[in-house]
Amino acid sequence: SPPSPVALPPFFMRGSIIQLADGELKRVEDLKTEDFIQSAEISNELKIDSSTVERIDTGQSPNAVVIQFSVGELKAQVCVEVLVEYPFFVFGQGWSSCCPDRTTQLFELSCAKLCVGDVCVSLTLRSLK
């Protein structure tokens, strides 16, 4: 059977309180690209990667899509299956999903339409020392 798509966790709900790496608290809808970059910079374990959307296909489960990303400098090809409303943070743009209307309806989180070519914020573990 196909793997279940990643369900949408509660912290994408508008108004959710997010703690940045320096301790600052922000609402999820107020996060900026710089917040992710600066948080990763002071993290010993996490590194920001740029992940470019290469393809978006219909998923095997209802309301799911398979998104193919090209990740980091090595352009590693990674596919994830998520629900259409799952938001990704696009550099310089903010929250974006394959079905922004549904994201807004379910989570009251304003979203742009995620498109091929968009560059999303993703994380990599730094090597553990």
Binding site: I18, S51, V71, T124
Partner: peptide, 19 residues
Amino acid sequence: VPVFPWHSLVPFLAPTQSD
């Protein structure tokens, strides 16, 4: 009120790098 860490919002898309 629950507080979530910033990194819970960001997907891990690449395998661990050795740098």
